[in-house]
């Protein structure tokens, strides 16, 4: 699998993939997308890199703790869910606001600020972390290799 062609394509794909994943996350409220699908897409792109370059090689350059990603994601989502309580609202109450987006004096349109976005961000991280944690764990498992492993 790790031909030069795969590697090159995987690298290009990753960039597009990441951008698209972020786009999906952000537009989720109004168009097809959202935290879950964005997260799965991002995980796909990174998994592709792992497959193309090999886990060991990728690890040398970039080795995030995927388990802390989903841990923090879960924490973040829970905090988002609880935080309305502090303002005296119900659990999971959401809010949104449209604010004009002005850059350098030009009115570019409306910027929609939605509080459930933060919850979606938590979902996004849980999905990325959870899936890639499974991929890396299964991929690096050496339990019954003939070489023995650990």
């Amino acid at each position: 699998m790790t031909t030069i062609i795969t590697k090159t394509i995987a690298k290009i794909c990753l960039m597009v993939d990441m951008l698209y994943s972020l786009d999906l996350l952000l537009i989720g409220g109004n168009r097809p997308g959202g935290g879950f699908i964005g997260g799965v897409l991002c995980a796909c792109g990174i998994a592709l890199i792992y497959v193309a370059y090999g886990y060991e090689d990728v690890k040398k350059i970039w080795n995030p703790d995927w388990h802390s990603w989903f841990g923090y994601g879960l924490l973040f989502a829970s905090i988002t869910a609880i935080s309305p309580l502090l303002a005296g609202h119900n659990y999971f109450r959401s809010a949104f606001e449209l604010s004009p987006l002005i850059v350098g004096g030009f009115h570019l349109g409306e910027l929609e600020l939605v509080s459930s976005m933060f919850f979606d961000l938590g979902v996004y991280f849980v999905v990325i972390g959870g899936l890639l944690f499974i991929v890396t764990q299964v991929g690096t498992d050496k339990g019954k290799d003939p070489e023995g492993g650990k």
């Binding site: 989720g28 409220g29 109004n30 168009r31 097809p32 997308g33 959202g34 935290g35 879950f36 949104f96 606001e97 449209l98 929609e112 939605v114 459930s116 919850f119 979606d120 979902v123």
Partner: peptide, 11 residues
């Protein structure tokens, strides 16, 4: 404030 009903239901 969301148009994507599926996503709004989920989050």
């Amino acid at each position: 404030g969301g148009l994507n009903v599926v996503n709004v239901i989920v989050v």
